[in-house]
Design a protein around this nucleic acid. Structure first.
Lengths: 208, 208
DNA sequence: AAAATGAGAATGAACGTTCACTCCAATAAT
DNA sequence: ATTATTGGAGTGAACGTTCATTCTCATTTT
């Protein structure tokens, strides 16, 4: 009984966040009105405000909800038998499988985080978390002798994130962009940067 | 006399666009009010509206103004003695020299272009222009035997744009991001992708 | 005098948020 | 067994504010 009550409230919050995600992805943060979100969530404004104290809190909620998912997806790399294979899987998951709306929503949140200090902090925490995790994966791979050691791995982590951002951005902004087409080139490039000189050659013949 | 009149009007428009750029970079498109822009331009709303018919037209104006500059910057690559040198110069110009505000403004425009169809069209025209120019440069370099020929050069152009977007994005969103630090890695990566196998080795020792 | 340039108050719509209220299920009192 | 009481869930009209845009009128230029 006690649990079901908390559960119901949590479910309601999730429903609201779903509705807000749809609205924000469709119209952007500022053009999506609370009335729109209320309509999408089939709920009156007054009631919605019992669950979230402000519009800003909706973004924060979406952020936090996505955080777990994003971070969890790194388990994939750990699980993969070999580093580059895991990286490819991660890239595919993040950059090809995700819908255009998801990506657009992400861009929306990132843009908004430049302004609301509270969201900026939350967002940067998440970024830091992800960066650390990537750096950790790189260091682990280095210690397993799967990648070169004479590369600045922190800088390399930045490069990987940058590649992810670039692909996300291009996908959301350029309708003609074909993620499937460039992904092999990207992976070859990363391999060229990180692979040990011995393992470098085999990757080359593939991208003609 | 006739020219000075047109000149004065053009100057006024430029001043307004400068003011709008500052406001948009600071507060974003939706949170920068026309009153703010009027204040920044030291001009009354009524007068400003004689120069630009709407807020949206301000973004369009900024877009068009930046277009010439962006496209012109590609002359640098043509002027460089060697392909990768020109590319490095271009990257530095676009990604390190530009102020954070400029980059943020660019992100702002890109985000907004997802919604206003008119701006979207304008923006995508510019993107196409840039992509074609990059592809042209790549093809020229290939014909000069400066880069590999067995790479999909159109896809490579996408990759280069994606790298630019990624760096811009990261710069505007991540205060700790050090463009200077990652740029060598990026260039090494691109070299690894495009350089002819013979010329590949010399680039390697540099990025320890 | 006519036209262009400018100012700034006015307008009306849209927005985020609040508030007074209803509804309903569950418990407590009779 | 019936009747109060409670309190969380939900409503939707209303509020104050903000904003893009327009209107009216003054000043300067030609």
């Amino acid at each position: 009984m006690l649990e079901t009550k908390a559960q119901r409230q949590s479910d309601r919050r999730a429903e609201i966040l779903d509705a807000a995600e749809r609205c924000f992805a469709r119209a952007g943060f500022h053009r999506a009105s609370m009335q729109d979100i209320c309509g999408e969530a089939a709920m009156s404004p007054g009631n919605l405000y019992r669950y979230f104290p402000s519009k800003e809190a909706l973004i924060a909620g979406i952020c936090e909800r996505n955080r777990a998912e994003a971070v969890a997806s790194f388990a994939m790399v750990d699980a993969a038998p070999e580093f580059f294979e895991g990286l490819a899987g991660l890239a595919r998951h993040h950059l090809v499988d995700r819908s255009r709306d998801e990506v657009a929503l992400c861009a929306e949140i990132m843009a908004e985080s430049r302004r609301h200090p509270e969201i900026a902090k939350l967002y940067q925490d998440i970024e830091k978390d992800i960066r650390d995790r990537i750096a950790g994966i790189l260091k682990q791979a280095a210690s397993r002798d799967e990648i070169r050691r004479d590369v600045d791995l922190d800088a390399a982590a930045s490069v990987l994130m940058l590649l992810g951002d670039g692909m996300s951005w291009r996908r959301s902004v350029d309708p003609g962009f074909d993620a499937e087409k460039v992904l092999p080139l990207i992976l070859a490039m990363v391999r060229g940067l990180l692979a040990k000189p011995d393992d470098d050659a085999p990757a080359r013949g593939e991208n003609a």
